[in-house]
């Protein structure tokens, strides 16, 4: 007889797997009430540590060649594929049916591939060379907004998580994500995938804990540029918009999305966390010269 080795589910901050600094935990249970694991009950301080890691990673990640970001997203998909069985098992533990669990994992892998392909293409789609009146070369391009805080979907523990993280990092942003509160196991196991995917530490930081407790820190931090919330609790939405006004965060609610469908993926998700920058430069225009015609 062999005793099973249980996994300690920890946070993912700056490429490391620390326990919550608060030392607190909560019990993740399945529908029947059986205990699945002790999970870190993340704190405000954990969020702040993650923010520091995320901010520190912006320059490096946004400075990577878009092609390279695409390769890394593809590598994440590879790592997820190789652990398919593990993720399906974990989703079964969290009350998904066999068919639903398989679909969730398969679609998650495909979604990463989808966004891997967008990394070096969405810029061309959303850029413009602007025909200004005057002797100037003028163009507009999307740039990452910076650090994005994300409260992940509650009922789609892996696919929902992947669907909100992928477009944000495909666009060169970094993020701090709060995993599904009731079904947190897949998020932490996904952090292990990220940790073995050449993704620089700090680009994605994953916390577990209470939405109610952490949501205000996700929306009122002065050095976070945008925030995403995926549930339709209108009082939470209202509070997020109000707190985000402190530093004019860009706010997005993905509360009506079916992550299993085609509408769960689109380059417009990438565009949400992009800023449009317009650059002007004069064109020398010597009087009397007729150009090259």
């Amino acid at each position: 007889m062999r005793l099973e080795v249980l996994k300690t589910y920890k946070l993912y901050i700056g490429g490391q797997y620390p326990r919550t600094e608060s030392g607190r935990y909560y019990i993740a249970r399945n529908k029947a009430g059986a205990q699945l694991a002790n999970v870190c009950l993340g704190s405000r301080k954990d969020f702040r540590n993650a923010q520091v890691a995320a901010r520190g990673a912006v320059a490096g990640w946004s400075g990577r060649a878009a092609f390279n970001r695409g390769q890394i997203l593809y590598r994440i998909a590879e790592m997820l594929e190789s652990r398919r069985a593990q993720f399906i098992d974990e989703l079964l533990l969290q009350d998904l049916s066999q068919a639903a669990a398989e679909a969730e994992v398969n679609t998650s892998i495909d979604r990463l591939i989808y966004y891997a392909g967008w990394c070096d293409k969405f810029q061309q789609l959303f850029s413009a060379v602007n025909p200004v009146a005057g002797s100037f070369f003028n163009f507009s391009v999307p740039e990452p907004t910076g650090v994005v805080s994300i409260i992940a979907p509650q009922n789609s523990p892996l696919l929902g998580l992947v669907s909100v993280i992928a477009p944000v990092i495909a666009g060169g942003n970094t993020c701090i994500v709060l995993a599904s509160e009731q079904k947190p196991l897949s998020a932490i196991t996904f952090a292990e995938v990220l940790g073995t995917s050449d993704l620089p530490g700090g680009v994605v930081n994953i916390l577990t804990g209470s939405v109610k407790e952490l949501v205000s820190w996700f929306s009122d931090h002065m050095d976070v540029n945008a925030t995403i919330y995926c549930e339709n609790d209108s009082s939470v939405q209202s509070s997020i918009r109000e707190k985000s006004a402190l530093n004019l965060k860009r706010v997005f609610f993905y509360d009506k999305k079916d992550w299993n469908s085609e509408e769960g993926q689109s380059p417009y998700f990438i565009l949400d966390t992009q800023e449009i920058k317009t650059t002007w430069h004069p064109i020398e225009n010597i009087a009397g010269a007729g150009g090259g015609y």
Partner: peptide
């Protein structure tokens, strides 16, 4: 910054975001 002028400044145009 959303608008960057290089070797010029304060230029505006309807076609320029």
């Amino acid at each position: 910054a959303g608008v960057v002028w290089a070797n010029t400044f304060n230029k505006f145009d309807p076609s320029s975001p």
